[in-house]
Structure formats: C-alpha cells, structure tokens
Amino acid sequence: MAIAVASTLVFFGALAFLVTRSPGWDRFKAYFFDWSLYRESFPEIAEAFLINVKIFLIAEAVVLVTALGLAVLRSLPGPVFVPVRALAIVYTDLFRGVPTILVILMLGVGMPALQLEGVPDSEIFWATVSLVLVYTAYVSEVYRAGIESVHPSQDAAARSLGLSRFQSLRHVVLPQAVRRVIPPLLNDFIGLQKDTALVSVLGVVEVLNQAGINEAADFNGTHYLVAATLFVAITIPLARFTDWLIARDRRRRQAGGVPT
C-alpha cells in the first residue's frame, strides 16, 4: 500500500513537472483551464448535455430489448431458420461495418428530407434511431456469446422436464446468459454514451455543439473541458459498477465451487 502510494506520487509528480516545463504550457493553460470561465459556462453546457442524456437513456433501453431479440433469432437452431439467421447475420455485419457517424448522417439528413407523411422529421429522433441500429448489432453479439456460453446440457435438462424450446430459453438459458454478459454489455453502453456526441454532425445543439459555439465566441477551450467532464462524470459510475459486478461474480464463483 505504501509502495503503491509512493510510486503513484513520484510518477504523477514527474509527469506534472515535465508538462508544466514545456514551452507552450502557459498558452495551453490559458486556453483550457480558465476556471472562472469554467464555472460560468458549466450550466449552459450541462443543459445541452441533457439532450445527450435523453438520447442515450432512450437508446439504451431500446437496445437492451432489440439486441436480445436479434441474438435469439440468430441462435435459433435447425434448417428451418436458415433465412432468419442469414438476415440477422447480414444486419450485424452491416451495422457493425458502417461507421456510426455515417449512419447518423444518412438517417438524420435523409429521413427528414423525405418529408413523408407520418415520418418524424426530428434530427434527434433519427440520431437516436441510428444509435439504436448500430448498438443493437454490437450488443446482440454480446448476448449471443452469453447464450452460447450456457452448456447445452442445461437446455437438455429443461427440455427433459417438458419445457418448450421457448420456455427453456426464457427460464433457463437466457437468465444465465444475461448474467454472464452484464460487464461487456455495460462496456458497450459506455461507448454508446460517448457516441451521442456524434449527433453534433446534424447540427443539433447538444453538448459538443454547445461547447463549440461557446468556444467560437471567446476562443477558449475551457468549454470543451466542461463537455469532457460531463461525459466522464456519467461514465465513471457505470465503469465502477461494471467492475463491482465482475468482482462480485468472481467472489460468488469462488465461494461456491461445484463439489464433485
């Protein structure tokens, strides 16, 4: 413990020394670390950030369900479901392959431009849809890995009791699969939260654009620091929660090793 503290202090001390001695430090400091500006800018940027929060909260809730549906479709067995599986594979390849920013641009610009009756023309709506489409592809792969990690003998035991294929999936396979994939799933959600900044390409005044507008007004990068702080502030709790879940899972397994 003492060694850890000492080595940490020495490391960061040396780093701070080197950075503050660099020739451009004073200009860098004035550009990014204007504390009075930070306090002044914070409320406005935080309010713009609420748009990002709204987008990722909705997207995450939807992805949780759609990704599970896609994963289940892809793990349906037998020749009857070949077309379903093929479609699921095409979907996953497509939306994992295309850069997220392109999907957002195409849907966010394209769909409102259609001016179709009944089709929403809000950029935020289509940006959210884009993130859902992309992250459904990622998260379904996470779920699928979980489903495949449940030993087939579990399904056999459930089916031998007379449970239908669906009942076995619902009560035996999925509960175990989901438990195992919570950490990687939350990891993808952290990615999704950061990717809400991509919505800025549509001109929506969310956190990144608001910071940019403020920066353009007084040529000070502190506004970006505010935006960065906000993202970190919502990511850290989720990251620590993920760590805690992993640690708890490990403890549990060690406590209850299968005695054979």
Partner: peptide
C-alpha cells in the same frame, strides 16, 4: 443425468 444438470441460477 450423470452431471446432475441442476439450474445454477
């Protein structure tokens, strides 16, 4: 079954 196959959850 030989390996019990109880549902661990």
């Amino acid at each position: 079954f030989q390996a019990f196959n109880l549902f661990p959850h």
